[in-house]
Amino acid sequence: MPRWYDRKINNAYFSETPKYYSRIKDVRLALAIRSATLARLLHIDEVTFLGYEENRTTELPLELFMDMSILTGLSADYLLGLTDEPAAYSPSLQMPENLTTERIREYRINHGITLKAMAERLDISESGLCSKELHPETLSFTILDIVLIAYLLETSVDYLLHLTDEFVPHKRGLHRKITLPTDEVIRIRKKLHLENIYATTENEINKYCLQHFRLRELRLANGLRQKDVADFLGINIMTYGGYERKPQIIPIYFLIKLAKLYGCTIDYLVGSSDIF
């Protein structure tokens, strides 16, 4: 993370300094598209995008998370790792044309928090905070500022950026990489008209296997848990879970054993035949 990541704040409401984890690259890889493609969709240069993706800049721009949220339908909170729930909040009824941080001042005043108290908690000067609040169109609040304020006011980054009118945030996440659900990947790719665009042959194979292999379908039909199947195969549950997420990596020996377990043909198990 950038060097300003460890900035301390004096705030009794926090058990620890709030963090964020940028999921920009994680989302792109989950969607199986090239950086050039996503950069084009975001209307920015690929080199610039790669700098953002790798956290090589001193400050990530707020616009990046707003644009990605609108583009993909994922919440800014999710893109920042503040929640593990990917679905966006309901859209704001009066979303401004240009990004603004005016809600920070409004929400602070409504919560009865003085300018001095907020400045102390953000570890910036009172005049500096005043300037940031009175000129919301300049977007002088940093990503870390926004994250800290969202925690302080017990709301979401999406609300502060006027992406939603919901002020109650989703359950806080673990600030780490998590796998984007397959149904979300399919929805986003369809939304972006990327159904037939793949970053690599491996991604194309993975998509084909996910659509045709019946590992999960047969397991659920037989009322089995992942642990039950893992025990039958003599492997740990994490390994078997990986096979359901990426069916193309499962050894043929295990396919033979699973076909015997479910009493079906291997052709049916891998989706090349509908004859059980």
Results as ranks from 00 to 15, higher is better:
3 R>M: 03
6 D>R: 10
10 N>P: 06
11 N>F: 03
14 F>L: 12
17 T>C: 03
21 Y>S: 12
22 S>V: 12
22 S>Y: 04
27 V>I: 10
30 A>V: 13
31 L>G: 07
36 A>R: 09
48 T>N: 10
53 E>V: 03
56 R>S: 08
61 P>F: 11
63 E>Q: 05
65 F>S: 00
68 M>V: 00
72 T>C: 07
72 T>Y: 05
73 G>Y: 00
74 L>H: 08
80 L>T: 02
81 G>D: 06
84 D>E: 02
85 E>I: 15
85 E>C: 15
86 P>T: 05
88 A>K: 08
88 A>E: 13
88 A>P: 06
89 Y>F: 13
91 P>I: 01
92 S>P: 09
97 E>R: 05
98 N>P: 08
100 T>L: 14
101 T>P: 14
103 R>I: 10
105 R>T: 15
105 R>Y: 14
105 R>P: 14
107 Y>P: 09
112 G>F: 04
113 I>F: 06
116 K>R: 10
119 A>H: 03
121 R>V: 09
121 R>C: 13
122 L>R: 01
122 L>H: 07
122 L>W: 07
127 S>L: 04
136 P>I: 00
137 E>K: 01
139 L>C: 01
139 L>T: 00
140 S>Q: 10
140 S>K: 12
143 I>F: 04
146 I>D: 05
148 L>C: 07
149 I>V: 09
153 L>N: 03
158 D>E: 14
159 Y>R: 04
161 L>Y: 05
167 F>E: 11
170 H>D: 06
172 R>P: 14
172 R>F: 07
175 H>K: 08
176 R>M: 13
180 L>I: 00
182 T>I: 11
184 E>W: 06
186 I>V: 02
187 R>F: 13
188 I>Y: 12
193 H>C: 03
195 E>T: 13
195 E>C: 09
196 N>S: 11
200 T>K: 06
201 T>P: 08
202 E>F: 04
203 N>K: 10
204 E>R: 07
206 N>A: 15
209 C>K: 01
210 L>H: 12
212 H>W: 10
212 H>D: 12
221 A>S: 14
221 A>I: 05
222 N>A: 13
227 K>A: 11
231 D>A: 06
233 L>E: 00
233 L>F: 02
238 M>W: 12
240 Y>S: 07
240 Y>T: 02
248 Q>E: 10
254 F>D: 08
256 I>N: 05
258 L>V: 07
261 L>S: 04
267 D>L: 02
267 D>E: 08
267 D>K: 04
269 L>Y: 06
